[in-house]
Design a protein around this nucleic acid. Structure first.
Length: 451
DNA sequence: TCTGGGGTCCTAGGACCC
DNA sequence: TCTGGGGTCCTAGGACCC
């Protein structure tokens, strides 16, 4: 906790949904839900219009549909979110070099390293308002909520207080007055399980928490968690704003609409995921020693199995074979709803290591050699049949640009509009119509970037 | 026909070494 | 015929975050 309010937290309001409404004028003022649209999808973001109906992040899409059937359900366009996010982060980095993005729509900014005459409340307030205006400008109208305080914890709590499109500055010294009446779940790290444990001990608010000794919290929650909670419960937070953090693991997972029972299919899916992980490791110049698979059974029990090599790998062949090998030992009768592959124990990977990338002897024997797996897996054969996901940008040879309104039974429905061309006609096509193709986003960004 | 995907951090037990 | 610790690495699972 600092003596001045010099930590800023910025949070873009209903970010994914707001980008969709910006780019698709017919959705403005209407409920929009972005998330998984399949049978087992969940909501990533709901627009404020959809929240009126009780639609929330992390809710199953099925439930969201029953609460708000007339909402637009979109599967998300991450290129658009990423490029919008980059503009926002650039604005923040102009204000201070110390910017810590937490996700595409959130970041901390350290104002102690900003070019400011002082860190008094009027000064940081003016900067915060300026940043909000600039964010609106560079994003084409998106709003942000901002909080400023003496620590990350306080800044983050503050940004939640006046959503959407709000700004709250918490004056130094008033932190506990703000926190005491609040529920313990405002504290980062206090989720459902910790909330329940605290509830059973009669601890509901931060004021309740304030009276509990550190030893008692450590006894209840363990060393690390107990200590952290005791600190935050007294608004003590010295966590620095760190601009870059090292990647610790890379993983890919998927939940399937119907449970898998065919082991050969499971192996094939793991192999494909391994290629995906490998591609991502290689484009970031990383390799790792530990390969982990994740299996979620029909009853939602989740199992992980891992194995560690003598030296790092990032080849699709090794990762895939180890993953499939780990699956062999698992009992999966009853069905599998999720499969995943990850690599951790990462080390920077440089070209020379290509020749030193020898696995443990037994692994090498089991796995053969990696050379067969080194062909780029991104060069998949192009077919004319595309997967049409709601919300996806498309282009029609005659009609021009639009987006997928819906699809099913071999037909895709397109609304022809962009942010610049307000609501146009709606047309339906066969999914294999050669005149219709996915619209490629700003292809000017250069090299093929990981998805 | 409840319950995503990509992560991070922590804990606990066992192996192994000194 | 009795019983150390400490440290590190690995594995599995769980809580949590956005």
């Amino acid at each position: 906790m600092r003596a001045v309010a010099s930590v800023l937290h910025l949070d873009l309001d209903a970010f994914f949904a707001a980008v969709e409404q910006r780019d698709k004028p017919s959705l403005r003022g209407k409920p929009v839900v972005v998330g998984g649209v399949g049978g087992r999808g969940v909501v990533s973001t709901a627009s404020y219009e959809a929240r009126k109906y009780g639609v929330r992040s992390a809710m199953s899409t099925r439930e969201a549909r029953s609460r708000c059937p007339h909402a637009a359900f979109l599967s998300g366009r991450f290129h658009a979110y990423r490029s919008t996010s980059e503009r926002v982060m650039a604005v923040l980095r102009e204000a201070s070099p110390l910017v810590e993005p937490l996700s595409l729509d959130e970041a901390f900014v350290d104002l102690a390293t900003a070019r400011l005459p002082d860190l008094e409340i009027p000064t940081v307030t003016a900067l915060a308002e300026q940043l909000r205006r600039q964010v609106e400008e560079v994003t084409g109208g998106l709003t942000a909520s901002v909080g400023v305080g003496t620590s990350k914890f306080i800044a983050k709590v503050a940004s939640e207080l006046d959503k959407p499109d709000g700004l709250v500055v918490v004056p130094p010294g008033t932190e506990m007055d703000l926190l005491r009446p609040m529920h313990v779940s405002v504290i980062p790290g206090v989720g459902p399980a910790t909330t329940e444990r605290l509830r059973r001990a009669g601890i509901h608010t931060v004021a309740d928490l304030e009276t509990v000794s550190e030893d008692e919290l450590i006894r209840m929650l363990g060393t690390a968690h107990g200590h952290a909670l005791h600190q935050l419960g007294h608004a003590r937070d010295d966590r620095p704003v760190v601009p870059e953090r090292e990647t610790k693991s890379v993983s890919v997972e998927g939940t399937y609409d119907t449970d898998l029972t065919d082991r050969r299919l499971m192996a094939a899916l793991l192999t494909r995921q391994a290629r995906n992980v490998s591609d991502r490791l290689r484009t970031s110049g990383l390799a790792g020693r530990t390969v982990t698979i994740k299996v979620r059974l029909h009853d939602f029990t989740t199992i992980s199995r891992s194995t560690t090599l003598g030296s790092p790998t990032n080849t699709a062949g090794t990762i895939g074979r180890l993953a499939v090998g780990l699956l062999q030992d698992l009992e999966t009768t009853g069905g599998v709803r999720l499969l995943g592959v990850g690599v951790s124990g990462l080390a920077d990977w440089i070209q020379e290591d290509l020749f030193g990338d020898t696995d443990d002897a037994d692994e090498a024997a089991k796995a053969g050699d990696d050379l067969d797996a080194d062909a780029p897996s991104t060069a998949g054969a192009k077919t004319t049949t595309h997967t049409w996901a709601p919300g996806m940008d498309v282009e029609h040879a005659e009609m021009g640009r639009g987006w997928v309104w819906g699809s099913g039974r071999g037909v895709v429905t397109v609304r022809f509009e962009t942010a610049e061309t307000p609501p146009g006609p709606v047309r339906s096509y066969r999914i294999d119509d050669p005149d219709l193709r996915p619209w490629r986003p700003e292809s000017g960004t250069g090299a093929t970037l990981a998805p």
